[in-house]
């Protein structure tokens, strides 16, 4: 074996499941990371910069007005309602981690329940946000009312769109789960893990946005 292939020293104890599609790809064998996970993190990196761009614009516009010239969020926004909504989103992240762990532990019934709960809680978040928008629009705060309105709707709107995409993905995963598509091997639960990364990222962005838009 003087000309052993590059992957000859790769063994399952590196953490890969034998059943996955991982063994066929050279990049996996060198980095020990799946292509899907690298791609998802690259995508999330671009998403981080996307939201940072929005936050940067908010900083410029808000600080640019000088002290005292920016509407106080608590007089304009419904902070308690959004605090509850934040709680919902945190719960949905927890149920999704629980779902993934359940599939990994060969407990698909619990996994399906976790996926269903995550989807419903995510939908609840979108619903509460829609209600908040309707209330604000009714109170006369529209995107063109003032700079705060523009910033608020752009930041929370883009985040809400991300949540909506996540909810649709989770709904699809839930259907696949109840059809018995997921299992304890990596290739069987990879879709949940990838969607989970995206969903937790959306949760993370909301944690930051809630602090910046509602509490500052």
């Amino acid at each position: 074996m003087t000309h052993a292939p590059v992957n000859a020293n790769h063994s399952p104890d590196h953490g890969h499941d034998e059943s996955g599609p991982l063994m066929a790809h050279g990049s996996i064998l060198q980095t020990q990371i799946t292509n899907g996970k690298i791609c998802m993190w690259l995508f999330l990196g671009s998403e981080i910069m996307f939201f940072t761009g929005l936050i940067g614009a908010y900083i410029v516009l808000r600080f640019g007005q000088g002290p005292g010239n920016w509407p106080s969020p608590d007089k304009t926004l419904n902070v308690p309602l959004t605090a509850i909504n934040t709680f919902f989103l945190i719960c949905s992240s927890v149920t999704l981690v629980w779902a993934l762990q359940s599939f990994q532990r060969e407990q698909p019934a619990k996994g399906n329940l976790g996926l269903l709960a995550t989807t419903l809680i995510g939908a609840l978040f979108v619903g509460v946000q829609a209600y908040e928008y309707i209330e604000l629009l009714g109170a006369g705060m529209a995107p063109d009312t003032n700079l705060f309105g523009s910033c608020f709707y752009v930041m929370t709107g883009f985040h809400g769109f991300h949540v909506l995409v996540g909810v649709l993905s989770l709904a699809w995963l839930t259907v696949m789960g109840f059809l018995g598509k997921f299992g304890p091997t990596y290739s069987q639960y990879a879709p949940i893990e990838m969607t989970g990364l995206y969903w937790h990222f959306v949760d993370l962005v909301w944690i930051i946005l809630f602090a910046i838009v509602y509490l500052m």
């Binding site: 007005q65 005292g68 010239n69 920016w70 509407p71 106080s72 007089k75 304009t76 109170a139 006369g140 705060m141 009312t145 003032n146 700079l147 705060f148 309105g149």
Partner: peptide, 8 residues
């Protein structure tokens, strides 16, 4: 539009 502190 951003000068009013309290009432949109």
């Amino acid at each position: 539009g951003v000068h009013d502190e309290s009432n949109v």
